[in-house]
């Protein structure tokens, strides 16, 4: 018999995603090599969190462990209090490489995770997400006919279509040119504000992090540990030449250990 008020209190305070004492150790030439060490992190529902760190620091390893693609050596990841034990459609990873299926059309890709729905509902959902990521007119196109930015938007649409609790994005715009990247950030923010999913976003760009995130988690170089957490308290849309923005960006640069004058 549990006390009612403690249960309510716990669920109110319970985070969407909870990482506890997470470590990942690889075997490299017979020697253990720590990629991620003792990560403790709580992310609440609907929050946009960026993981920032130097390249090769283990950001992607951390994200793969959170998504269930990699079993942690120690510690655990829980979503809604349920321990993550493998890939699951309630948490979808979006990859840096173009992971849309080249053998399916735009519609086929968005509908990939929806095969169990009745036909009518599936088509409605596909149409909704085609519109959301602005791929109207390309429903029957194959990925080989799409630009890099369109492929990534398609990947995001495929992920959102299955209604995931958490969306993990692993440097999703890393392979795009800088203009497309800025446009894609705006698109992602628009989509996030429309659908309010919990988003964990890995990047190595400080600007990207400050423009997108509610909180930025700064990771140290390998093995990745949480070095600092920076809360970005600017409402959207953010003015990227406002003094507050610049101050936060400089602080982030300082945390990473980079000079902000070249």
């Amino acid at each position: 018999m549990s006390l009612p008020h403690t249960v309510i209190a716990a669920s109110a305070a319970k985070p969407k995603l909870q990482v506890t004492g997470l470590s990942v150790v690889y075997q490299s030439n017979g020697k253990p090599l720590a990629a991620v060490e003792d990560i403790n992190l709580e992310i609440s529902d609907g929050e946009f969190v960026c993981l920032v760190g130097p390249s090769g620091c283990g950001k992607s390893t951390l994200m793969n462990a959170m998504g269930g693609f990699l079993s942690p050596s120690r510690g655990s990841v829980a979503i809604d209090g349920e321990t993550v034990s493998g890939p699951d459609r309630r948490r979808i990873l979006v990859f840096q490489e173009y992971a849309v299926f080249p053998w399916l059309t735009v519609e086929g890709n968005i509908g990939f995770g929806l095969s169990k729905l009745p036909r009518e509902e599936r088509e409605q959902r596909i149409a909704h997400y085609v519109e959301l990521v602005r791929l109207q007119g390309f429903e029957h196109a194959y990925p080989s006919d799409l630009s890099g930015g369109m492929k990534q938007r398609l990947q995001v649409a495929r992920a959102l279509a299955v209604n995931p609790d958490v969306l993990f994005l692993d440097e999703p715009f890393g392979a795009l040119d800088s203009i497309t990247r800025v446009l894609m950030r705006a698109e992602l923010l628009r989509i996030w504000q429309a659908e309010r999913r919990t988003i964990v976003f890995v990047t190595h760009e400080t600007d990207e992090a400050v423009q997108l995130a509610d909180r930025v988690v700064v990771l140290s170089s390998r093995p990745a540990r949480i070095q600092d957490i920076l809360t970005i308290d600017i409402p959207h849309p953010r003015n990227i030449s406002s003094p507050r923005y610049l101050a936060l960006r400089d602080e982030l640069l300082k945390m990473i250990g980079l000079a902000y004058e070249i």
Binding site: F69, P87, L93, E97, F112
Partner: peptide
């Protein structure tokens, strides 16, 4: 490519669906 396998396994398909569709 590993990325197709990862992406495919993310959508909770049964093994036979996974073979047929990925």
């Amino acid at each position: 490519p590993a990325v197709y396998i990862n992406a495919g396994s993310n959508f909770g398909l049964s093994s036979s669906d996974f073979v047929a569709r990925v």
